[in-house]
Amino acid sequence: MSGAVDAVRCVGLVHRFGDVLAVDHLDFRVGSGEVVGLLGPNGAGKTTTIRLINTLLPVREGTVEVFGVNVRSNPMGVRRLIGYVPQQLSIEGALTGRENVTLFARLFDVPRRERADRVREALALLDLEDAADRTASTYSGGMVRRLELAQALVSRPALLVLDEPTTGLDPLAREGVWERVRRMRDEHGMSVLLTTHYMEEADELCDRLVLMHRGALQAEGTPSQLKAAVGPGASLDDVFRHFAGGELRAPEQEGLRDVRATRRTARRLG
């Protein structure tokens, strides 16, 4: 890792939605070959941070670099390096699994001679060969997530970006996702940035954690470093409670804010 350029480098990153400060002077890095977890309660700014890194939102204040490529000056270069799985399950149900993955092979300019093999390789990696020629509308939630991982991996990205990859999955499906992420890191040296609010996931999967709250960085370190910092015998749950503090003890408020946000979204979507 020494000498290698960081997979992600954020410096002084700020993002506002109107009056809402969603990301507040955030500094963090993801080393090459590292699995880093962005951890924080709902509304902490995890998704916004991810959307700034993957060029979906414009970076107006601060700097983001992916493998040394600046997101603002070369967004197209950054997109070629990233495989992205959004928070929402999002595949084209009218197409088969193979067709879904092939579309992304084309959109990432996988050469035509290699395309069919690369698609097969990605589907095999996620154990979807048997279901590959069924329309994706027949897939279970766990299979959809794996199909999305296959879509993200078919371009052989250097950085995998996963927004709450296992939310809503059953424990078995969750294990399946973890196993694939580990393999990507171990066998291909892939760097991974993921968000989660599952402590178990953070503990099991991540080399390093970045704790966010209200858009700002609260703590950073390996799971064991963070636990040690809070006290002997502390669990990651304790760490989370310690750093996200009083807010977590007022769940009804958090809930209300969420409901309002959902209503806003619903109105926006019509």
């Binding site: 890792m1 290698a4 080393g31 090459s32 070959g33 590292e34 197209m76 270069g77 070629r80 390096l81 990432f108 300019d109 996988v110 050469p111 371009s155 052989r156 990205p157 250097a158 950085l159 580990r182 890191r185 171990d186 066998e187 291909h188 040296g189 892939m190 099991e204 999967l205 080399d207």
Partner: peptide, 20 residues
């Protein structure tokens, strides 16, 4: 979990040269 990170393999993560 604490496997030391390995260097990116040459055929992965290299992207594809941009075209016109």
């Amino acid at each position: 979990m604490s496997v030391p990170p390995v260097a990116p393999r040459a055929d992965w993560g290299s992207g594809v040269a941009p075209r016109n």
